[in-house]
Simulated scan of single mutants.
Amino acid sequence: MIPPDDDAVAVQPAFDELGRLSFAEHSLESLLQRVTALAAGVLPGEPVISLTILTDRGPSTVASSGELALRLDEEQYRLDSGPCLAAASTGQTSEIVDTRAPSDWPDFAPHAAAAGCGSVISFPLPVREKVAGALNVYARRFTVSDRRTRALVSRFADYAVVPVSNMYLYESAVERADHLATALDSRAVIDQAKGMLMERFTLTPDQAFRALTRVSMQTNTKVRDIAERFVATGDVPGLPTRHGVAGTGAVADGC
């Protein structure tokens, strides 16, 4: 155990590393794993650490330093009750000083005790840009009532939230950009197919689009895929061609 006066010196390298974590060197998964590994290395008692993140789809463990932490997180998700969920959803530190004693989570605490976890502290990640979560510490060799332990967990969470939330924001922005690019590409090829149909067969925009969607429903194929094939070949079964409607009759029929 590190003497209290030496805490700042002992843990500062980990905090410095948190400040240096960059998007260029890490994926979201590797960054989160590094955060949990650093936490396990600087917090006393050889704990196992996890990170819980809350989204519209519910809670999930995005990283853990050991199987025990993952199992205990998932048990709380199953029960819909426990310190990690309470900390992430309320923004208040939640703890079980002794899993063998009565607690606010009578269903979860015995499960944690049976798994070999003596105490739990879940510290909320400060909310940044709608990223809500908790840093969960599961320990066998110390109690969370220790003020020094609480201070270390609090300080680590304050440092950890910066790279974690920034990486989430970055990943979300990239995902949105990819979706936008895909949507724009789809619109472009559909508009091109519509234009070809309108020019060749004197159709209105609405008639041309209905022709594409009709074939899409008949063949259970995305409109984008129908449009891409038509633009590339000029011949899709069910769509008008230079010689009429492939397989369905006159151009006006079904449009």
Rank of each mutant, 00 (worst) to 15 (best):
L21N: 11
A232R: 09
G45W: 05
E175K: 15
N136D: 15
L85P: 11
M198A: 08
E74S: 07
L79N: 08
L135M: 11
A177T: 13
A181M: 11
E171L: 01
A88R: 04
P13S: 06
P102A: 09
A115K: 11
V97N: 15
S172Y: 09
E175S: 13
L68S: 14
S89M: 03
G45C: 12
R200Q: 08
L85V: 06
G19N: 02
A160E: 07
R224H: 08
A37Q: 05
V131N: 09
R128L: 11
C255P: 00
G45M: 06
P3C: 07
L54P: 03
A183Q: 13
E199Y: 10
S145C: 01
R78N: 07
Y168H: 09
S50P: 05
A87T: 08
K130R: 15
T204S: 15
G66L: 06
S64D: 07
S145V: 01
Q92K: 15
V120F: 15
T149K: 04
P3Y: 07
S165V: 02
T204E: 15
P102V: 04
D158P: 00
D185W: 00
G118N: 14
L68W: 05
L135F: 11
L152D: 03
E175D: 14
D146Y: 03
S186L: 04
G238D: 11
D206W: 02
L31R: 02
